[in-house]
Design a binder for these strands. Structure first.
Length: 478
RNA sequence: GCGCCCAUCGUCUAGCGGUCUAGGACGUCGCCCUUUCACGGCGAAAACAGGGGUUCGAGUCCCCUUGGGCGCGCCA
């Protein structure tokens, strides 16, 4: 009965896809999926000076890493400039727009006096009804919209509610620049209309634009789409999260070892809620999502929560799948390429075996690599200071004896190993921990690791005994 | 300066006039589990910005103040 939902994500390729843009894309995508509609992607590349192919690639790459897929062909706004110009001419012909010959200096003056006199409207409309015959020679005009002078303009925002402006505060915006290129305001309206966009979901930094864009829709006699202006994401300090303030691109989150599913889950809960639910599978998100549940206040970005969520997702990912995710992320992670270079079938098998113990202790894929260092290390393995301190002469003696015992343990299993170690500890009058810690130090070079018997099993008899002998010492020598 | 938006624990949020002595999650702090570290379990501290209304009754509605944000380009 009602028309199918069409949303769009419309980034300008002047930088990477930052976290706010990623969430906007996510919301557009979720809404379209939730309503059985489509999400379109439009690259707003009309600023020829600042748009770059690198930025376009980064945005596309970021979206696909996040698992956000758009429908249909990517639309490039600049390619539609001719159509935008047409609409401007149409408006001009219909008397809904006019040529303005004001110079930059005049404009600056107008702005200054408006500000001085406390007026909202910056451009005074001096060419609005002026005879074109008075046009100064040799000056290329811009085309401005004849915006309504009185009354008010309102939008029924799906998130913000009814928002109203007095038309006397809104001036005649430029549609076409003096060089004949369309402005953003014109291009957005024409494209959204031509693309049959039904729902414009974007950051609330565009809220004021909605009023002015409404004027263009009205002038063309087009129906205005539904707006949903979502609150912005701020940095931990409450200031705007933007490129200028050190915000990160989504590629940075990939490089920090976050899983796309975790980032999606974190992002969806920033501004949107579904009762007390914190964890959402993609299917659940789609089923539960609605713009009416989006809050109106800005949120601060909290790395601690993202990290916690990421840990949750890692623990709940099957070992093989997590290993695959790790391998896929290796090219982007610090030291990742080194790991990738030495990753062969036997090593992969060891990592897989170690994964249950590793993933419980990791919040990010970087943690996973750090934790897996003992698997990756080659004899003689590096021993850190805290581990070194554990390797006292007594401990070294113990390790040597234990190594002898390990030669004979059958089978090489957690159970058999534990039995052997406990027996040794008892004989020596030591607690299990007093034996386990030096053992851990010799085997992993650290004071923390997965369960020590799991470590032994993952490493195998030869490697384990070898590492123990590297650190061990027979009593007679000491 | 002008316009618009926002305001519940440190953070993300639940709350849609009475069930709120305000719930959940992250973080913090205890305790338990324990071979380390995690994980897990249990528990604690922690918020309705302030002031006026409306109402029998306000975190929930209205107004003001304060605080924050966004916008005000021939950028997008």
């Amino acid at each position: 009965m009602s028309e199918p939902v069409v949303t769009r994500f419309a980034p300008s390729p002047t930088g990477f896809l930052h976290i706010g843009g990623a969430r906007t894309a996510l919301f557009n995508w979720l809404y379209a999926r939730a309503k059985g509609g489509t999400m379109l992607l439009r690259i707003e590349d009309t600023d020829r000076e600042r748009s770059t192919q690198a930025a376009i690639d980064a945005i596309l790459d970021g979206l696909s890493w996040l698992g956000i897929e758009w429908d249909g062909e990517t639309i490039y706004q600049f390619a539609r400039a001719e159509r935008h110009r047409e609409v401007a001419e149409e408006l001009l012909a219909a008397g809904r727009a006019y040529r303005c010959y004001a110079s930059p200096e005049e404009l600056a003056e107008m702005r200054e006096s408006a500000r001085r006199e406390g007026r909202a409207k910056l451009y005074d409309g001096r060419w609005r009804d002026r005879d074109p015959a008075e046009a100064p020679a040799g000056i290329k005009p811009v085309i401005r919209l004849k915006a309504p002078l009185d009354g008010e303009t309102a939008i029924e925002d799906l998130v913000q509610g009814r928002v109203t402006w007095q038309n006397r505060d809104l001036d005649d915006l430029v549609l076409l620049r003096s060089d004949g290129t369309p402005t953003y305001m014109l291009a957005v309206v024409v494209d959204d209309h031509d693309m049959r966009v039904t729902h414009v979901i974007r950051g609330d930094d565009h809220l004021t634009n909605a009023a002015r864009q409404t004027h263009i829709y009205d002038a063309m006699g087009w129906s205005v789409p539904a707006f949903a202006h979502i609150p912005l994401i701020h940095g931990p300090d409450g200031a705007k999260l933007s490129k200028r303030h050190g915000a990160l691109g989504v590629d940075a989150y990939r490089a920090m070892g976050y899983l796309p599913a975790a980032l999606r889950n974190y992002l969806v809960r920033l501004g949107w809620s579904h009762g007390d639910q914190e964890i959402f599978s993609t299917e659940e998100m789609i089923a539960a999502f609605d713009v009416s549940r989006i809050g109106r206040s800005a949120a601060r970005f909290d790395f601690a929560k993202l990290e916690s969520l990421n840990g949750h997702y890692m623990r709940n990912t099957a070992d093989a799948e997590l290993l695959a995710a790790l391998e896929g992320a290796l090219p982007y992670l610090p030291d990742g390429p080194d790991v990738a270079a030495k990753l062969d079938a036997p090593l992969r098998a060891k990592l897989l075996a170690a994964m249950p113990g590793l993933k419980d202790r990791a919040k990010t894929l970087i943690d996973l690599i750090t934790g897996a260092a003992f698997v990756l290390a080659e004899r003689p393995i590096p021993i850190d200071d805290k581990a070194r301190a554990l390797l006292t002469p007594e401990a070294q003696t113990l390790l040597a004896k234990l190594a002898d015992a390990f030669e004979a343990v059958e089978p090489w299993s957690v159970e058999a190993l534990e039995q052997t170690v406990r027996a040794h500890a008892e004989d020596a009058g030591l607690k299990l921990g007093q034996v386990a810690q030096p053992l851990r130090a010799a085997l992993t070079g650290k004071t923390t690791s997965p369960g020590i018997f799991d470590v032994l099993v993952v490493l195998g008899r030869t490697e384990s005994v070898g590492r123990m002998r590297d650190q061990g010492r027979v009593a007679a020598v000491a």
